[in-house]
């Protein structure tokens, strides 16, 4: 059974692509055959984060249009077994994403016995985002701890409950979980950001994980290696936890509180 997962947010720049890359890589590292698809036609980004931008020949739209078959479009990751990337096209417009076309691609991935297909949604609630979500079995809503991002996520949650194929066929809502990213406990303490509790109260959905604001994410995208490969970093570890929870393991949440000063720091007020 292939599970199709949409990574979405409403608001732009909150960490969907970072999350899609980490989640897909994390699942593949655990031996699950996974493809990650960039639905951001016109603003492709995922190939950079995955470090395969120099190997792109065909893209999602080529495969939809039949210029290339699925096998030609998929890029096999060089670091991790079982991981494939289907990049977006930089040049075409979003109208190329038809429902039939997307379905054809997803069916092709089912035939290849992918266990997970991660759909990296563009921002907004326009066609690209709707197409990325339409066939999903499950959603991950990426949110930053600030009011506008939370509100957009709320809107997306509402749209997910009516605009997926499952909803249209009367199978009800697809399960949706919250991933809170760029979390900075220090800034929460200073009242500059919403806390995990605040966001959960407003959105009323299950929490998949909290990813701290981290320099490691920037380093990772500069070097074209998803941050989950950096298991020395807080963000890498937080993503690894989220992947574990995603497949049903229990993990306590970490990185929720500001780093405590060491014993000496506390004793001597350093």
């Amino acid at each position: 059974m292939t599970k199709i997962v949409v990574v979405t947010s409403g608001k732009g720049g909150v960490g969907k692509t970072t999350t899609s890359a980490a989640l897909a890589t994390g699942l593949a590292m655990r031996g699950h055959k996974t493809t990650v698809i960039d639905f951001d036609v016109g603003l492709r980004n995922l190939d950079l984060i995955m470090g395969c931008e120099r190997r792109v020949v065909y893209d999602l739209v080529n495969v939809i249009n039949g210029d290339a078959n699925l096998k030609q479009g998929l890029i096999k990751d060089k670091r991790v077994e079982n991981l494939f990337i289907l990049p977006a096209s930089q040049t075409r417009d979003k109208d190329a994403l038809t429902q039939e076309g997307v379905e054809k691609v997803l069916n092709g991935l089912r035939d290849m016995e992918m266990e997970y297909v991660i759909c990296d949604s563009p921002a907004g609630i326009e066609k690209g985002a709707l197409m990325a979500a339409y066939f999903a079995d499950e959603a991950i809503v990426v949110t930053n701890p600030e009011v506008s991002s939370v509100r957009d996520s709320d809107r997306i949650l509402g749209i997910l409950s009516s605009k997926t194929r499952k909803a249209e066929q009367g199978e009800g809502d697809i399960p949706a979980r919250l991933l809170l990213t760029r979390y900075s406990p220090e800034r929460v303490d200073r009242g500059e950001m919403l806390s995990v509790g605040d966001v959960q109260e407003i959105l009323a959905v299950d929490l998949l994980g909290v990813i701290p604001e981290s320099q490691a994410v920037l380093n990772a995208s500069n070097s074209g290696a998803p941050v989950i490969l950096d298991l020395e970093s807080d963000a890498g570890l937080a993503y690894a936890d989220a992947v574990a929870r995603f497949i049903g393991e229990e993990r306590p949440h970490r990185f929720l509180t500001a780093a405590k000063k060491g014993l000496f720091g506390r004793l001597f007020g350093g």
Binding site: R151, D152, D154, R155, L157, G158, S161, D173, L203
Partner: peptide
């Protein structure tokens, strides 16, 4: 019984 979301 379900949350009523922004836009709904």
């Amino acid at each position: 019984e379900q949350p009523v979301r922004s836009g709904q």
